[in-house]
């Protein structure tokens, strides 16, 4: 986990099999939104939205407040349903789909929330073992071992027996990240995971996410206002406005030389 390992740059259009790095699924498309429309009341939040994310990529969603970034993550997590359109994850349809099919797809997706949403009635260790035991069918011992390894990874090995309320916000969020990883998801959704934290706690959580991005092949979709972080970890940045992706590209391109007027305005306001 040396801090100066450069982000692996993917050469464009490299033929399958010829790549020395990564598995063969690296280049496969994992998530696809096709003509997804979502309305709340009378307002259209997502308007025939189309985009796709390749496996193993780290994609950052940016855009003005209310542009629907959270809604996109919630659609993927099946916390809400689109009004029209289709969403596929790993070739399996998430919508429209039966509840059973949703459940299967959902197992491959983890989410970290702005407000952590740890289970306050369970100790930290059990927060991490509850789902692996009851969903993946791991034995208690296996799940606890996995949980301890993850707590070690997030630097909280000594907090197994604490209750979430006894931890700082930054520690809670790191537990929440570990809890999501305990399910070994293919996709990790991160919704402004540092915006509820005191400023001095932000760096620790972002560093952890940088580490995870670097050392795992997990596909990450994150919504963030931390533009430096976005620049560091992203393979691709998607700019949302008016319910659609108005611009997408490498972080160098979006942050360095945005083509769209709205992107320039937005970045001008947040940077």
């Amino acid at each position: 986990m040396s801090a100066d390992t450069p982000l692996m740059k993917e050469p464009d259009a490299n033929p399958e099999g010829a790549t020395p790095t990564g598995s063969t699924t690296d280049r496969a498309e994992l998530i696809r939104f096709t003509d997804v429309t979502k309305r709340f009341g009378g307002t259209t939040i997502l308007d025939r939205l189309c985009f796709s994310v390749d496996a193993g990529k780290h994609v950052t969603l940016i855009g003005p407040s209310g542009s629907g970034k959270t809604t996109i993550l919630r659609l993927l997590m099946t916390l809400t349903k689109p009004d029209e359109g289709t969403i596929t994850v790993g070739g399996q349809q998430l919508y429209p789909a039966s509840e059973k099919q949703c459940r299967e797809v959902r197992k491959n997706i983890g989410m970290v929330f702005q407000q952590f949403n740890l289970f306050p009635n369970m100790k930290v260790l059990r927060n991490l073992t509850e789902a692996p035991v009851n969903v993946l069918g791991l034995s208690k011992d296996e799940a606890e071992q996995r949980a301890r390894e993850l707590l070690d990874l997030v630097g909280l090995a000594d907090k197994c027996d604490a209750y979430p309320t006894q931890l700082s916000g930054g520690q809670q969020q790191r537990v929440a990240i570990a809890r999501a990883l305990a399910m070994r998801p293919q996709v990790l959704l991160l919704d402004e995971v540092t915006s509820a934290l005191d400023p001095e706690l932000v760096a620790g959580v972002l560093d952890l996410l940088r580490d995870i991005a670097r050392t795992t092949d997990i596909t990450m979709l994150c919504v963030t206002h931390e533009m430096n972080f976005a620049r560091d970890i992203s393979d691709q940045v998607l700019m949302f406005d008016s319910g659609q992706v108005i611009e997408s590209g490498s972080p160098e391109k979006i942050f360095g030389d945005p083509t769209h007027e709205r992107t320039r305005e937005f970045l001008g306001a947040v940077l």
Partner: peptide
């Protein structure tokens, strides 16, 4: 809080388990 239901869904906890454990 609604976030507790959402966290349970995000972890794919079955309905019954969500009620009993969370």
């Amino acid at each position: 809080p609604a976030g507790q239901w959402e966290a349970a869904t995000a972890l794919s906890l079955p309905r019954s388990r969500t009620w009993i454990a969370v």
